Computed example of a mutant assay.
Amino acid sequence: MTTRIQSTIQKTDTLARLGGDEFIILSPYTKSNLAAHRAQELINVLHPPFELEHEEVFTGVSIRDQSTSVRWRYGRGID
């Protein structure tokens, strides 16, 4: 999962793992319209299943943009 997330972040971003399935990306100077685009990129790279011990594992994604208080889930903005 980390590798997929890293493929979408910029050199100026900071990626941290908070817990077993929680990650945070600090992305300074990112405007809300770009944040929405980047949220969709994250959803796109995390949507395909992972292979774990010869089994497909599917994940869910929930993204929160702290600068605008908009949450993103599966490509849709939700309030």
Rank of each mutant, 00 (worst) to 15 (best):
M1W: 09
M1S: 14
M1D: 06
T2I: 10
T2E: 15
T2W: 03
T3I: 01
T3L: 03
R4Q: 01
R4K: 11
I5R: 00
I5F: 04
I5V: 14
Q6T: 05
Q6M: 05
Q6S: 06
S7I: 00
T8C: 11
T8V: 13
T8W: 02
I9L: 12
I9F: 01
K11A: 00
K11C: 00
K11P: 01
T12D: 06
D13W: 07
D13V: 00
D13Q: 07
D13S: 10
T14K: 09
T14M: 13
T14N: 06
L15K: 04
A16V: 12
A16M: 10
A16K: 11
R17L: 02
R17T: 03
R17C: 04
L18Q: 10
L18H: 08
G19V: 01
G20Q: 13
G20D: 09
G20E: 12
G20P: 06
D21T: 07
D21N: 15
D21I: 11
E22S: 09
F23P: 01
I24A: 14
I25M: 07
I25L: 07
L26T: 11
S27A: 14
S27V: 05
S27D: 03
S27K: 03
P28K: 07
P28Y: 09
Y29T: 05
T30N: 07
T30D: 04
T30V: 14
K31G: 06
S32F: 09
N33S: 10
N33I: 06
N33D: 13
A36S: 08
A36W: 11
A36K: 12
A36D: 05
H37W: 06
R38D: 04
A39D: 01
A39R: 01
Q40N: 03
E41I: 03
L42M: 12
L42H: 02
L42C: 08
I43F: 11
N44F: 01
V45G: 02
V45H: 03
V45I: 11
L46E: 11
P48Y: 10
P48W: 12
P49Y: 15
F50P: 00
F50M: 12
E51L: 12
E51K: 13
L52R: 12
L52V: 15
L52Q: 13
E53P: 00
E53H: 15
E55K: 15
E56L: 15
E56A: 14
E56D: 15
E56K: 15
E56I: 09
V57H: 13
F58T: 11
T59P: 01
T59I: 13
G60I: 03
G60C: 14
V61K: 02
V61N: 06
S62E: 05
S62D: 07
S62K: 11
R64A: 12
D65C: 05
Q66H: 04
S67R: 01
S67M: 11
T68N: 10
T68E: 07
T68R: 04
T68G: 03
T68Y: 03
S69A: 13
V70K: 08
V70W: 09
R71Y: 07
R71K: 12
W72M: 08
W72T: 02
Y74Q: 11
G75E: 07
R76Q: 12
R76E: 13
R76H: 08
R76P: 00
G77K: 11
G77S: 15
G77V: 10
I78H: 10
I78S: 09
D79A: 08
D79V: 08
